[in-house]
Structures are given as structure tokens and as C-alpha cells.
Design a protein around this nucleic acid. Sequence first.
RNA 1: CGGGGAGUAGUUCAGUUGGCUAGAACGCUUGGUUUGGGACCAAGAGGUCGGAGGUUCAAGUCCUCUCUCCCCGACCA
Length: 581
Amino acid sequence: MRQTSIITNPKKSSKIYDSVNATLLIKGGFINQEAAGIYTFLHYGKRVLDKIINIVREEMDKIGVEILMSALSPFDNWIKTERINNVDVLFKADAGNEPTRKRSDSAYILQPTHEEMVTPIVKEFVSSYKHLPVAFYQIQPKFRNEPRAKSGLLRGREFLMKDLYSFHKDANQFKQYYAKAREAYIKTFERFGFKYNQDFFVVYASGGTFSDDFSEEFQLRLDVGEDLVFRVPSTNVCYNREVAPSKAVDPEIESEQYEMKEVFGEGIIGVDELVNFLNIDIRKTIKTLIYIVNEEYPIAVAVRGDYEINEDEKLRKVLKATTIRLATEEEVKMHTGCTIGYAGILNLNPNIRLICDESIANLTNFETGANKENYHLINVNWGRDVEKPSEFYDVKVAKDGDLHPSTDERYEVFRASEIGNIFDLGTKFSESFDLTYVDEKGEKHYVHMGCYGIGVSRLMGVIVEKYHDDNGIKWPKSLAPYDIHIITIGDSDDVMDYSKQVYVDLRENGYDVLWDDRLDLSAGEKFADSDLIGIPIRIIISKKTLESGSIEIKNRQINDIYFIERANLIKQVREIYDNLL
RNA sequence: CGGGGAGUAGUUCAGUUGGCUAGAACGCUUGGUUUGGGACCAAGAGGUCGGAGGUUCAAGUCCUCUCUCCCCGACCA
């Protein structure tokens, strides 16, 4: 492709956006922002997107059948699953103006995900165990009214997604397929140049609203990633922070037990203030929080001062509760007798169940609220001052430095960005839509479902975050918009003719070539544009190289420059290309 | 959803206590000179100041409503 025919070339703008991918993709002429979290893919961006799609498609074809479902869904489907009330990112599509409204006032959901559509479709075709297992996938735009779109392609309101849905006669059959899908995902990401258990990891994450089990996320290690991954070094088992089981490292156990004292501390509320006031180690403090369970009864939860409570994934599951929430100021007063800040594990109202985190199990001479207005207790010890509970739980948010409870290894903790997610849907949707099959004995059962997603356009953003330098993007060869970028410097007939010859030659040898044949730009501008576009191989043709009889080739991935004989061009290019990432 | 910031030329922005014909840089057009890391000279085009209403002799500037974008947090199947 001649660059003169592409108007959407890189911009000179020096505007910095909130993320590297937004800055480079917009400046490089890959995407154009239309609204918050909504982008057009311009020529270069569309080429990259197509490459991503093709890789994903080739791998998904091995485990599923491609279809294309509509973006608009009838409201009824969403009412049937009750997600019309729960999913808080739904967009609605209805008549856009008065003339249309007069004709039809139909309204649709712009689908954020397709369980509501694929399940009824499968119901039309599946009725026997002989039809199972079966899996369908699509690559199609999704619409989510995110409260806050941000970070370029990483969090959009309209984005391209590959979603695959699998259908099975039982959990067993599902598990077999799930393992296969997991392998297919690993293979897919490896084709983007990512190394398994080095660049990307399979990470346990919350099962979401569908399941109490974990789902698995594919996380690409990235300093600017939005997720925190906890990896067990010896096994490569990884957890998303939201579900990471954790064991705290205890502070030193003091052999001497000091005298327990009440300390007056009016207005000293919150751990940081307290640590300052008492001048003690934060790891010797205990914070006690009052929660209301299922809107029915209060409980107290005690955790070491330097930890937060993991309400959703840990506390809620320990209690087997449907809802928990922090008590209000009035409720705290009612149940503990004092204002927020003085609740503790001593002298607690005996009607309130106390849940103790394991982080406080081995503390000595510790601090806790006195359950008395304005008072804290210090030098508290288990056994002597308060009965040690028979059971401790893990209800805290894991943090860097924590140990993995079953191996006692210290976690390796790093930031990462999610590139895929697979999970067990169980029979939730088959029950909503009455999707059943008849088994060998003639008995009816609900179909067991699974769901597997890759954010295709998001992946493009993540890849830019991973592969770039200060000057622009450095695409892996499998994803670059073109294989080779020819830059012609100067406008003499000699350089133009020779450039054209190289352009044709390379194309005939099977390469996708972009030729910067623009006449009115300086060399510096062309180099800058080329760095931004990030095509892995750059061939520079100028008066200078022509006179020396050589050709200059730059490997954009490592920014190395080679001068080669004109006669060896194709051979040398092939050699460099084959060794690219 | 809470808090904050901003909408003025294609882009990024300036525009003072309300006051004359609304500016700059980059980009664009024309002519010329250049051509190895974001050129040079000259001339030129380009604006309903987000929208609606109001106050005023006078509104980009003040007031009300509204739409949109951006940032921080909460949220994130």
C-alpha cells in the first residue's frame, strides 16, 4: 500500500492521554475517538485488529463453531434471566427520533454479553444427549455502559469481543471441554508472542455472580496492569488479589506479657492515627469492624490493623451469607454501645458472633478497641485477657509479603492486565430458558454451560502497553499492520524508481508492504511516523544508500540497523523477518 | 454513583474587573527553497466561542438549564 493513498497517517500532536495505548494508537493513526470509550479503527488499526481476529479464529475453530449473533436483543430475554435488574452496564436501543417513534416504539438491549441470546438458539437445536457437547463462538461488538471508560482500548463502552459458549450434559463433560478450551487459550496467546508462565499466567479469579467457584483469567504481566496477581513460585498457581488465600507473616512473638492497660484516646479513630498516638507497630493492632449479615444480624470481624477485609470473596463465603455490609454509625452504637472507632474483641456484646482473621492468631501484647467510648486496650494477650477462639479464618485482602497458606511460600506479586477469562456457568441460563436434553434413559436434565471470552480490541491495547518505546509501537510480526515499511527519502526519479522496484519485488515475494511515497515530508518526519506505526522491518532508500550500492534495513523491534547488498535484498529481508518476535 | 476540571479555528490552547474587527502555535492552501530524525521563507484560507434561555447600552466573559469530554474514587460477568 502506498502511504499517499492513506490519509489517516500519524499525527504530529503531542497530546498525552491517560494511557500509553491511547496516546500511541491515536497519534499513530490507528484509532480515532468518537466518544468516551468509543473508537473507530482507522486503516492501520483495522489491519492489526484483523490479524488478532484471524489468530483467535484459527484457534477457536479447533474447539467451536463460529456464528454471528445480533447486537440487539429483545428485552424479554433479559427479563427471563432477571439480569435486566442486576447488570449495571446495560445500554438500551430504541427509537432515535419522533418520526421513528410513531412507527414503532420497540426497544432492545444492546448486548454486553450473549448468554441471553445463545441459550434460546441452542434450545432450538439441542434436545438429546447425542447433540452434546457443542460449542459456538463469535467475534462481535459488545456494548457496556461502563461508569467510567478509560485507558484507550482497555476499558471501552463499545468493544470487540470473542465469546464462546459451550453446552454439556453434565459437570463431568463440561470439565473435559473446559480443560481443552484452557489449552486453546494458552495456544492462542502464545501466538501473539507471549510466553506461558512468563509473560502471561492463568489466574484464579472470582466466579462472579454465577458461581461460588473460581473462574480463571488469563493475565498478561504488565507494570501498568489493573490487576494484582499473587503467584505461588513453586507451582505457578496464581490468584487474582480478589481471591488470593493469604497467611500473614507474624510480628515477633514477645515472651514477656506486659500488664494490660486502658488508654484514653478521645477522637483517635482509625489505625493510622492510633499507631501514631500509641507509637506502636501497626502489626500489633487489631481493628474490629461490625457488619450486618443478610440484613438480619450483626457480627464483629477482627483483623490485624494493616489489613483490609475481603468482604465479597472471603467474609461472605465464610458466613455463607447472601449479603453483608458494614454497619452504619447508628447500628455500631446500638450493638457495641459506643461510636465507630472503639469496637474491640474484649468485652464485646456476647450476642455478637466474632470472626477472627488468622493474622491476629499469634499476636502478643496487642492493641484492641475497648468497647468503651474513647478507650483502647494495649498489651492484650490471648488466654490471659481474652479467650483464644477455637477457629481463625482468612477474611482479609491479600497483600504483598503474604504467604500462600498451603505451601507457606511467599507469593510473588505483580501487576497484570486481563486478556481472557473462562468460567463455569453451571445451569443458571439453561434453567432460565428451560434448556434441557433427554439422556440415554429418557430422563430430562438441564444443560451444563461454560463461557469463554477474549477482549479482542482490548488485547490490541494491552499489546501496545507491552510492546512500545518512547517513539512508538513495536508490533510483533504476527500483528503488525504491514510486514515491511519502505521509506523513500528525497523525490528524485532515481530513488522513486528504485523504491518502486523494491516495493514490487517484496510484494511478489509475499510480504505486505507499506511504502512511504509521500514527497513533501522531510526525512525526520518520515522516520518519526514510521516509528509510531511500528512495522517491524524498515527499508530506507535514499540518494545516500543508492550511491553506496547498499540498502539500509532497520529492525524496529530492537532498533538495530543493517546495511546489505542490493542483490541480496530478498534473502536478507527473509532472514531478518524470520528471526523477528 | 460521589468529588474535581474543561468545552473558543482541523488540533492544542490564550483571551484580565463584561467593552473596539476574537488571538497564538501546529496543521491546511499557494509559490519558492530544502531533504538522514518532527525543515526554512513569503503570501493566504479557516470561528454561530458546545446548545437553549436570561441579565445588560454591550456577553467568549455574568446567571439558569442542558449536552459532551477529561481526571480521581467507587464499580468492572
